[in-house]
Design a binder for these strands. Sequence first.
DNA 1: AGCTCTTATGAATCATTGA
DNA 2: GTCAATGATTCATAAGAGC
Lengths: 286, 286
Amino acid sequence: MKQIDINIEHGDCLEVLKQYPDNFFQLIVTSPPYADSRSKTYGGVKPDDYVDWFLPRAEEFQRVLRQDGTFILNIKEKVVNGERHTYVMELILALRKQGWFWTEEFIWHKKNCFPGKWPNRFRDAWERCLQFNKARKFNMYQEEVMVPMGDWAKTRLKNLSDTDRARDESKVSSGFGKNISNWQGRDMAYPTNVLHFATECNNRQHSAVFPKALPEWFIRLFTKEHDWVLDPFSGSGTTAEAALALNRNAVGIDIHSEYCQLAKERTAAHQYRLCEEEAEYAADNS
Amino acid sequence: MKQIDINIEHGDCLEVLKQYPDNFFQLIVTSPPYADSRSKTYGGVKPDDYVDWFLPRAEEFQRVLRQDGTFILNIKEKVVNGERHTYVMELILALRKQGWFWTEEFIWHKKNCFPGKWPNRFRDAWERCLQFNKARKFNMYQEEVMVPMGDWAKTRLKNLSDTDRARDESKVSSGFGKNISNWQGRDMAYPTNVLHFATECNNRQHSAVFPKALPEWFIRLFTKEHDWVLDPFSGSGTTAEAALALNRNAVGIDIHSEYCQLAKERTAAHQYRLCEEEAEYAADNS
DNA sequence: AGCTCTTATGAATCATTGA
DNA sequence: GTCAATGATTCATAAGAGC
């Protein structure tokens, strides 16, 4: 049994990452400090300065990420002066100039978003999860995140009608046909690019709204066991905890020592479990 | 009873709109032809040329829109060469330079999105509905789109199948069950900025590009009866039909005469109904 | 009125082939 | 080599039919 490592590092990821070699991490998944929000607790980058602040760090991310690795950026633009700020749009364009491929934009639909009422907008119930890659080919394990198929399909597969196969011939102008027989024996379907996760509102001391299920989903999709996962804005260590629970190695970096302390405590339990298992394994094989 | 007008105009909106005065429309809601490399399908604007093509038209939109009016743009970027093209990002930035306020981005979640499987991406289940305004203050009637809490909860609970529960990974403490208590005693709730509409797949001759419910929602939210609604890329007239059904005046413009013909036919039924009602009204008051 | 079962089809994407 | 057309892949919804 291979050892699972976990490093929680204190400092600015721009500096800390210099210790890490090129092409090291399989996945970077992070929810960086949002512009200006929580300005006291988290450094407080102004919306207008956000891109300039982010880019040098993204350059380090690109260096330490493997060629077949993936970078997931969970972000949402703030409302400034009654309109959505454009720093996320600008960031996407700037990251592409930096050499990243903007492969996809997942939507995280927050089902139990914060209540509230404003005169000219509704509650914000979604965030972006931007997928960037170093190359067009990257590792992806789609089967790991399959979801139960709709009830409709299940009942239908019991009796396969003639017309279900007939559309192969009667193709429409688009040249689209279907072959329902492929579905037989399956009760799982591939998900879409809209993710449904409830925000965790546990009244811990940290205000992170990042539910563990979110990094978990991307870790399962883009890495296999014993791969290395990085969260350069680690906060209370949700990503590291998720990685550990899935038997991946993890590095979490945060500029606040309190958060690092918290993250270390959270991951300690997992490490203890892993050590136990290792000891058992060793005993069994002695 | 005031007369409801409907104009379906044939031509390029860039030209046709010149006949309309400044500050005329209360709402512009449209789903423009998406960028497409194939030139035959719909005018065929190439992704790289999209912003340049769109901007002069947006300038006309800005002229004919009232100060307190709203412009809703339903759009989604295509995948080009394995990554999302950036023309929508660039368009948002360009429209802001043109003077528009980018107030909000609604997400249209298409639950019955197009099937398919690919090695490095999942099915695309959402589109953007970008909200632009001429001023920070604009008309908005939030009560008109409130969702009935009781009914929704009831049907939701009734239809809550096992797969629904398995699919919603809201197994956190704040999950589905807990929120039910919050609904007690409340009939209506404000929606969020995530909209759920299925694409219409009726076996008619004309296939609606977007479901009627989508323009309907925005028309109810941003206009009152007898306001003027514009769809500059009208297609088969879904927006005009929705506007008419809600007792709003509508103008639809499309560059294809076949679509204009179709739109006229669709709206004719509504106009007939309105005339009938008017006649009755007149008879009652004679 | 309900309920099930049947059927049509949708702004999709990718790899390959052909011009 | 670049660009355009073709074939292969696949799920959720509503409308309609039948009971």
